[in-house]
Design a protein around this nucleic acid. Structure first.
Lengths: 203, 203
DNA sequence: CCTACCGATCGGTAGG
DNA sequence: CCTACCGATCGGTAGG
């Protein structure tokens, strides 16, 4: 009935359970039950519960590293770079809604380790986006009082939190909330052009 | 040595542990050890571990209900209402840095229950702030394409996430990040005045 | 607020 | 990938 081999299924199911209930709130028995094997069988594929956690996060990091080139390509493809980059990021986190929850939980549960991962895997492109912002500030296209690095970090935090939290809380439709997230990020960065040639519609 | 009676100390310590390790990651034994009593003694004061969790969150809600009048007063006190309201909110969440983490964890762990609490305790003033925004939109002072309700929800989400996450991740000073959070929230709402009479310094 | 204790479940191992 | 089993710890109770 279920797709894939045990290792693949285990990763998929553990991802969902860790995202929904947290690492400490999920037992190996819970995972084994859904995978459809006995608990010791999981420990044949993953040396320990902690190894399973690590594998879940490494898989997500792998997906991120696949998505990253697309994001960077979007960042250098002429105009509308801003919307393109944020669009790709939103696509990544929405492709699997567990990703945002998983990251948020990891940040709360293992802040030191997560800070190290962030420095390693986010820093490079945070720096490059910040550099792009600084250029835009010199031409007056972007708000001069923005703090480029802090802005990028905040937008990423904002995006992940909004996605992780939205289906959970929203009495409001997701689309409405996400569209406003984008509008806010844009308005916080771009100086409104005094003579706009073609004002972007918000959809 | 430790201050307060057992009940008070238990609440304080449980708040810190739940914020740092999560509910499932904290055992009654952990709490008892730090309080300095035996585990069954905790269960004399709180009927169950879940009752302790409820008490921790109710205490925080109580603090919120104390802070709320100040926030609402700030919202109606003439000019600079925006900075005053956000300033009060930041003050609330920074007064005890566990609060933001605790809320974020509760949203992840018990989304349905948290959504109900939010509706009950946040909705009223979210609505009133949204109404204030709508008025500002009519006078052209505020961005007309902002979605007032979604904007308020997003700013609150943003604020809580940024505070919960900041000390954890930041290779950057907290102040720098929080100042940019405020700048972003402001720039996303206010239309820059064409002839500014007194441009607010960012500090 | 304590000692003594409970059944259930935890992550994990032995051995096949 | 299974059966059988382990010590440790879990939240919680009895009884004082």
């Amino acid at each position: 009935m279920p797709d894939g081999d045990v290792r693949t299924r285990t990763l998929r199911i553990a991802t969902r359970l860790f995202a929904d209930r947290g690492f400490d709130g999920t037992s190996l028995q819970d995972v084994a039950d859904e995978v459809g094997v006995r608990k010791p069988s999981l420990l044949y594929h993953f040396a320990s519960k902690d190894a399973l956690r690590a594998a879940v996060y490494e898989q997500m990091l792998g997906h991120w590293n696949v998505a990253l080139p697309r994001i960077l390509r979007a960042a250098t493809s002429g105009e509308d770079r801003f919307d393109a980059v944020l669009g790709e990021m939103i696509r990544f986190f929405r492709e699997d809604s567990d990703r945002a929850k998983l990251i948020l939980r990891e940040v709360l549960d293992r802040p030191r380790e997560m800070a190290a991962v962030m420095r390693l895997h986010m820093r490079p492109w945070i720096e490059s986006v910040a550099a792009y912002i600084r250029k835009g500030q010199e031409t007056g296209e972007l708000h001069g009082d923005a703090d480029p690095a802090a802005y990028v970090v905040n937008v990423v935090t904002f995006l992940i939190s909004a996605i992780a939290v939205q289906q959970l809380l929203a009495p409001m439709p997701d689309e409405q909330v996400m569209r406003e997230v984008l509008r806010m990020a844009r308005a916080a960065l771009f100086v409104p052009t005094p003579a706009p040639r073609a004002r972007r519609s918000s959809r």
